[in-house]
């Protein structure tokens, strides 16, 4: 490491990490982080989490007519290890909630969640004992997309909103402990 950069890094009181910019990282890492965010924003690989009818629209979003590849998000992954954004597409039943949370926990940082459609976002018409009234009771949601189901372009708009959020560094990372703590508590409640 060139001496100049080393001094910059080591003079800082805390070791800079991703997403810790506000607390005073170094110039180099900060700039790198911006670059990383650009990269992240333009290759958010979704994790398939189709739960109901919204999944059909989610699939058609990736197909030729709407072509999510234009946003670098064509690679739908069936494993949480390779997913960046979880698109919860459909009504989330209370039985599915622990599964959803487990898969969310298995995703590597940084990770994001899009709640697609009325049911995932709030329960929609299913205001009953079986459906979680909003996926944000289980996982922290970054972008809500209204619609029943949202059309592919509405979902693309949601993904663009997420890109914007990532670029503006407002996206949640593992440093945002409070929210994760809150969601962990709700997870326990759901399990109970």
């Amino acid at each position: 490491m060139p001496k100049r950069i080393e001094s910059l890094v080591l003079h800082d009181s805390s070791t800079p990490t991703f997403g810790d910019i506000e607390k005073g990282g170094s110039v180099v890492i900060t700039s790198l982080e911006t670059l990383f965010d650009q990269a992240r924003a333009h290759s958010i690989w979704p994790l398939t989490f189709g739960l109901a009818c919204c999944a059909i629209e989610m699939m058609s979003t990736v197909a030729a007519r709407f072509d999510l590849a234009r946003f670098g998000s064509e690679a739908f992954r069936a494993t949480p290890r390779q997913g960046d954004v979880m698109i919860i597409a459909g009504r989330l039943s209370k039985k599915m909630a622990p599964v959803l949370r487990q898969i969310y926990d298995q995703m590597p940082e940084p990770k994001w969640v899009i709640s697609m459609g009325a049911c995932a976002s709030s329960g929609g018409v299913y205001n009953n004992y079986a459906i979680v009234q909003g996926a944000d009771q289980v996982v922290p949601v970054d972008v809500y997309v209204p619609g029943c189901p949202p059309s592919p372009d509405a979902l693309i708009y949601g993904i663009m909103k997420l890109q914007e959020k990532i670029k503006r560094k407002e996206a949640k990372t593992f440093k945002d402990l409070r929210l994760i703590e809150v969601s962990a508590r709700t997870q326990e409640e759901v399990r109970a």
Binding site: G134, Y144, Y157, K165
Partner: peptide, 11 residues
């Protein structure tokens, strides 16, 4: 149709 947003309150 472009209604997506970040927070519940915004809806």
């Amino acid at each position: 149709f472009e209604l997506a947003n970040y927070k519940r309150e915004q809806f």
